[in-house]
């Protein structure tokens, strides 16, 4: 009677465990490129409209709390993040705290990035470090009192920010989990498509149901599977919009979503766009949180 030796079992186990131990790999700039694209880093940190250098600092972003300018995150040692360690970078992304201990305004969506895996974040930094350093100082934010005092961010973070890596839902399949991870941790769709409470925190009960206070005062549509949202859209329609920006009715997305398509979602793999579409179709259908026009 043939028996399986413990040695063979050990080998089999080692083979099946490879994906889990992949988390211990060294950072890869190549993988980081796809994290960078999914995260949409370029569009906020680059003044695309005025053909600014990549990652040298973003255009004004008007919000109800003031006007923000995403800083220089190019690998420049003085003005960018060239001098940061991996640990400092991961802390900035995960905890919203800079190497100097400064707390970041949540206009930088660390509320989403906190859910990214450590591997993804280290890969992301490795990729950013391959880009050209730009010696250009970041523009200070233009924020009125009391938000100009960064200490006001501490109670905000206490109430509106839950740090920690995203946990897969074991009751759902791998595709759904990939879509949920991408959406929650990297593509941060909810930062614009979800209404905020009075303090500017994301209202999870109305997840993805739209917002009247999008970037630059844009109205951002409901993208839950409700009739007022994308109820009639197929998975293919969502994939198609993310890939080429076309709505099923022939219209073309513009404004901020046009930037998302151009610099982020069109660069994802087809499998990742499918995962995001599957995830959105699974969301609870909610009525639109955007007030109707008069």
């Amino acid at each position: 009677m043939p028996t399986i030796s413990p040695g063979i079992i050990a080998v089999l186990l080692a083979v099946t465990l490879v994906p889990a131990s992949a988390a211990a790999q060294g950072p890869s700039a190549e993988r980081g490129k796809s994290v960078f694209d999914a995260g949409g880093c370029l569009a906020c940190h680059t003044d695309l409209k005025n053909k600014g250098e990549p990652l040298a600092g973003g255009p004004p972003l008007k919000t109800p709390f003031g006007t923000f300018y995403a800083p220089n995150i190019s690998p420049d040692r003085t003005h960018g993040i060239g001098g940061w360690t991996d640990v400092q970078f991961v802390r900035a992304m995960r905890e919203g705290v800079g190497p100097d201990g400064r707390h970041y305004y949540p206009v930088f969506p660390y509320t989403s990035y906190t859910k990214a895996t450590e591997q993804d974040l280290r890969d992301l930094k490795a990729y950013i470090m391959t880009l050209a350093p730009v010696a250009k100082p970041s523009r200070p934010h233009d924020v009125g009192f009391p938000f100009s005092i960064r200490l006001t961010l501490l109670p905000w973070k206490w109430l509106n920010f839950t740090p920690g890596e995203w946990k897969p839902d074991p009751s759902k399949d791998a595709v759904w989990n990939r879509g949920a991870y991408l959406t929650e941790a990297l593509t941060h769709c909810g930062e614009c498509h979800t209404p905020r409470n009075l303090m500017g925190g994301i209202d999870r009960k109305r997840w993805m149901s739209g917002s009247a206070d999008g970037p630059d005062g844009e109205k951002v549509p409901n993208i839950t599977p409700d009739a007022s949202g994308i109820g009639k859209w197929s998975v293919k329609d969502i994939e198609g919009l993310l890939s080429d920006g076309g709505n099923p009715d022939g219209d073309y997305v513009g404004g901020s979503m046009g930037e998302v398509v151009a610099h982020s979602s069109s660069k994802l793999s087809a499998a990742d766009r499918n995962a995001i579409a599957v995830y959105f179709k699974s969301l609870p259908a909610l009525p639109s949180a955007v007030p109707k026009k008069k």
Binding site: D244, G245, V253, G254, G258
Partner: peptide, 15 residues
């Protein structure tokens, strides 16, 4: 889509 329609709709059309 992106280079044709998007060339105008992204910078020049309000939501």
């Amino acid at each position: 889509g992106p280079k044709g329609c998007g060339g105008c709709h992204t910078p020049f059309r309000a939501p």
